[in-house]
Design a binder for these strands. Structure first.
Lengths: 213, 213
DNA sequence: AGTAATGGATAGTAATACTATCCGAAATGG
DNA sequence: CCATTTCGGATAGTATTACTATCCATTACT
């Protein structure tokens, strides 16, 4: 399989594949001559993973590089690699100001309260803090709340259960890289799916509330 | 309150506020002289809404314009405005190919199966179809499945219930614009919050599965 | 044998989200 | 009252991102 075939089977233009090769998102094919290389279904899978991260997950090239570096680093244990990937997948926002610091402290308490095994420096804490700040800034909570994260207390058990089910779905037998890849792509793709489901539920609820039957 | 004060209280540079004014994301202040205008807390709220849409929600300027146009159009009923806003908030991906068409058909069946009141042309259907395609492309389902959306059947009732609770939290009494604004910003901010919670649950589950206690 | 495709390198591009500068007029502070 | 700052409005510039196009000598296909 040469680059043109890879382009054909993935639907990605050759120029873009070359770009991904240059950026290290796609590993080089095995060279057969000075200007020829062979690609296989590992590359096909990788292209699909890259596209899922970039377009479905909305990651930048730089973040995708970090995610894939963690996937590919065979010396890194599965859970560590997932942590690196998770950090890379968190959108980078301006996180200065006391509002954000307070929210982060709240999130830390939330994590401790539920004894969640989330790294102390995990970027996802910042992501939840961003949302907490947004909730306050945009006045989404009726009366002033002492701890915004208490809103989420009730749904933690169900979420953990769901996550455990999801983490357990890795096909067996699987290599380390496949495990990490599976978990990473599952994070972004199911996130889109759940978001879409929630939006559908919101539209349904909005119709029930404000529109004629 | 002049533009400098608006900048100070929102933390957004004057140049950026001027840009938002030009783009119609921020309504003009009431003019007090040929080169002076007065801004109030309506503008403060709007700036926060714009920032939440752009940065937290990751919308483009153009999409935020569409959302805000729906919020501001007083002739548009609440539910219709929410529909327009929802369509504008769906990420625009390449949606050609039979893979996508099949996924969309599956989504349509899903919507009908659960009798969800989602508009036939709602963009959110495409969003869920994107995820369904991603699930298949990236091989996230163990055995080949006849209908991917069946995965989500079990969680629909809980999601609808949650959505109903959320839609009902609009503060009373509230004007039409406030209702729409509340629902719209709730869509994006809670989405980030839930995504962050899920990611935390995933990290927790990953730790339980692959890391020492 | 001739056309097309390849790897590798370099350069160009369209879109996005601001940011900076200039202007003459109005506000502010001592 | 006068120097300094800020104002609204307009125009132009910029940094980044994610590709896309072109060139070249070499190799593959027919």
């Amino acid at each position: 399989m040469r680059i043109g075939d890879l382009a054909k089977t993935t639907g990605v233009p050759v120029a873009t594949l070359k770009f991904y090769l240059r950026e290290g998102l796609l590993p080089a094919g095995t060279p057969t001559a000075v200007n020829q290389a062979e690609y296989d279904d590992v590359h096909v899978r990788r292209v699909k993973l890259v596209r899922a991260l970039l377009h479905l997950g909305g990651l930048s090239i730089a973040d995708a590089q970090r995610v894939l570096a963690a996937v590919d680093d065979e010396t890194m244990p599965i859970h560590d690699a997932f942590g690196v990937a998770q950090d890379a997948m968190v959108p980078k926002l301006d996180r200065s100001g006391t509002r954000y610091a307070d929210a982060l402290a709240e999130v830390d308490r939330f994590v401790r309260r539920h004894q969640l095994r989330v790294r102390p420096g995990a970027a996802v804490r910042g992501m939840l803090a961003d949302a907490v700040v947004g909730l306050a800034e945009c006045d989404l909570l009726g009366e002033p709340v002492t701890d915004t994260c208490e809103l989420f207390d009730a749904m933690v058990p169900a979420m953990v259960e769901q996550a455990e089910r999801e983490v357990a779905t890795t096909p067996h037998p699987a290599l380390r890289a496949q495990q990490v890849e599976h978990t990473v792509v599952g994070t972004v793709v199911f996130e889109v799916a759940y978001a879409a489901l929630r939006r559908m539920a919101l539209e349904h609820a909005s119709a029930q509330r404000w529109s004629a039957p």
